[in-house]
Design a protein around this nucleic acid. Structure first.
Length: 280
DNA sequence: ACCCAGGAAATTC
DNA sequence: GAATTTCATGGG
């Protein structure tokens, strides 16, 4: 049992429920005591907050408390970026933007692993969040490594690349299974290089991701925002189209600036939790 | 039975 | 090229 403690900056904040259950990640589960169990970087951990300090507990002996691992989890929860300042700037853009940010002020954009984001958002297309979670979890329990406590690592591209569509039928993912296999094969051959895409100019990065079957403009932007931390991306799904048409009729994604992706996440969560705004 | 879901591909006009 | 239909699956 090891423990990492990371204190946030004075005017900054992190709310685990808002961040881990706002539709950007599909693998974390809340425990009865308010902590969250999950897996990232192949590590099974329990995350919790104490005042303004993030606590990462691991049951594994080999998960050493060292500087490198501390930096890794600070990176995952994006603690190097000050969201207090960003929220202040976004709130000046539009009064409803301010409402959305204040509705869930502890949301942060995670630094998820690119391959996990790629698969998760391929699965997300024309689907609902509850079923997405089920499919992603079956993906891990069937093809990932057992980490104990009934939690599994995210399957590698290499492993998935060798499977057939019938192997993936246990997922219940429907036609999306074909897309997952294509993504895995292109990753293994090097035709798709996620590390390089992460650093590409945005138009080129989008184009590269869309070479994968089942990845269009929306899924590409989700992979870029959630898996590659390209904060200028503003994924437009059915909820965001509704929200923009109703709440920001005169605005476009670019109007939110270099941190548009963070604005998008506030607006997405705000809209999904307040559906009465869209009933006519 | 019908409609929707963090869309994209295939087909048709 | 733009608009429409189809795709597999589960839930309401």
């Amino acid at each position: 049992m090891s423990e990492i403690r990371i204190k946030l900056a004075e005017n900054d904040e992190l709310n685990l429920r808002e961040t881990l259950d706002c539709g950007q990640s599909f693998r974390w589960t809340e425990n009865a005591d308010g902590t969250f169990s999950g897996v990232a970087f192949g590590q099974y951990v329990i995350a919790s907050m104490e005042n303004n300090t993030l606590i990462i507990n691991s049951l594994k002996e080999n998960n050493e408390v060292n500087e490198k691992n501390e930096r890794l989890w600070a990176y995952y929860f994006d603690l190097n970026l000050n969201y207090g300042d960003i929220k202040e700037n976004l709130s000046c853009i539009h009064p409803i933007m301010k409402n959305a940010a204040e509705f869930a002020p502890g949301i942060r954009i995670l630094n998820q692993e690119p391959w996990e984001a790629l698969c998760s958002f391929i699965i997300s297309q024309n689907n609902n969040i509850k079923r997405i979670k089920g499919i992603v979890n079956r993906f891990c329990t069937n093809f990932g490594d057992d980490l104990g406590e009934n939690l599994y690592s995210f399957p590698t591209a290499k492993k998935i690349s060798a499977l057939s569509e019938s192997d993936l039928s246990v997922l219940g993912a429907g036609y999306r299974s074909e897309y997952l296999i294509d993504a895995a094969q292109k990753t293994v051959t090097g035709e798709l290089n996620l590390k390089e895409i992460k650093a590409m100019p945005i138009a080129e990065a989008r184009q590269e991701l869309q070479k994968v079957k089942g990845i269009g403009p929306k899924v590409a932007d989700c992979v870029l925002l959630y898996g590659m931390h390209r904060l200028e991306c503003f994924p437009m799904d059915v909820w965001m189209k509704r929200a923009m048409a109703t709440l920001f009729p005169s605005m476009s994604p670019e109007d939110f600036g270099e941190y548009a992706g963070i604005a998008q996440q506030y607006i997405f969560h705000y809209s999904r939790m307040n559906t009465e705004m869209f009933e006519s």
